[in-house]
Design a protein around this nucleic acid. Structure first.
Lengths: 193, 193
DNA sequence: AGACAGTAAGACAAAATCCGTCTCAGTGTC
DNA sequence: GACACTGAGACGGATTTTGTCTTACTGTCT
């Protein structure tokens, strides 16, 4: 999951990201990324054998790692399970809303981007969420229940982010807390350790 | 100079403009513009025989016409020559600074865009400025002097827009007025009618 | 009804671009 | 000197884009 990423690799990924923001993934060429990162095309293929697909895969992975790294940093030191869950969904929702890169992608290439948040990408997002968040939940629940809970929350955060509701605002603690206590916690009450 | 532009033509030019903002002129294809404007490629070639070059030429012309139309509307009713000149350079500078399309182009494709403001495009800009602004100056100066004056101002506005000065801000009347009265008007004093 | 102008859809070949791989030369390190 | 890493760029093949052309549809005018 993690990265012994060299400095060159990071430069390339940064270049890919900014190219992507400028032109959208469909319009970016390997040469664009190469010249933007000041790296030759040969090097780029050596680093990411498979070309654009592999490169953007790696970029998505890095973005996810960064996302969850920031997220876990924001929610550490929660007092109890309820507090942890509320802070997690709130922070995640706010991160999503503040993500400039994501906003641009959603605006310029809704199809691909939505795929990365739903059908194609959701399983991976859930994997990442599991890896990063389950350890935080583990003190309160058996491992199996933790995984179920984290998956559920990940799905809900994304759904409410993509299509906001009139009834709940998961970016707002005052709204998220009753949502968590009413709909989520009771289902796991029996398993509370 | 002017346009018996049909509604289809306008739709196409609007589409070209928004495509251009999204991807930059280098990445836009004829098909992009065709589908964005909901017009078939055949029609597009009928309207602009010559393809992308001719189309973007037409777009630049239209942008210039719009620019100077808005500009002349803003400066009508000036009391005297000094007032006219000050209001013109101020309005032009502010228009330039507020032009979202221009800002995007300058950011994403500095080379081409700068060319359109300097070496390649400046002569045309001056022609447009002449056509639109000289009539306003004519009451005060002989025709030949008007043209010289307008050209000079056009060059100055663009230069100060592209590379702002610490000494003058042509977007600010309080700064533009002494500039005009000190450096511009005296040179044309002799020719004042 | 029939002529006609304007258009969408799409086939087609030619041109341009992009891709992925490869070689070669240069550079810095051990 | 051996070695790993890189930039530059050549190369053929795949893909995209271009510009032209044909066909069929639609509405308007006579």
């Amino acid at each position: 999951m993690s990265s012994a990423a060299t400095v060159v690799e990071l430069r390339v990924l940064d270049a890919a990201k900014s190219c992507c923001e400028r032109w959208g993934i469909a319009k970016v060429t390997i040469d664009d990324i190469a010249s933007e990162s000041g790296v030759s095309r040969a090097t780029l293929y050596r680093l990411f054998p498979g070309g654009k697909d592999v490169l953007f895969e790696a970029l998505r992975v890095r973005e996810l790692e960064d996302f969850f790294t920031r997220l876990t940093a924001q929610v550490e030191g929660a007092a109890d399970l309820e507090d942890l869950l509320v802070r997690t969904v709130v922070a995640a929702t706010q991160e999503l809303r503040a993500d400039q890169h994501l906003a641009l992608m959603l605006a310029s290439e809704p199809g691909d981007t939505l795929g990365q948040l739903t059908v194609d990408g959701l399983p991976r997002i859930i994997r990442f969420a599991t890896v990063f968040i389950v350890p935080l939940v583990d003190p309160y629940l058996p491992r199996r229940e933790s995984a179920r809970l984290v998956e559920l929350l990940a799905r809900l955060v994304i759904s409410y982010f993509l299509a906001p509701s009139d009834h709940v605002d998961l970016g707002n603690p005052e709204s998220a807390r009753p949502f968590i206590t009413t709909f989520i916690l009771p289902a796991f009450q029996a398993a509370l350790s």
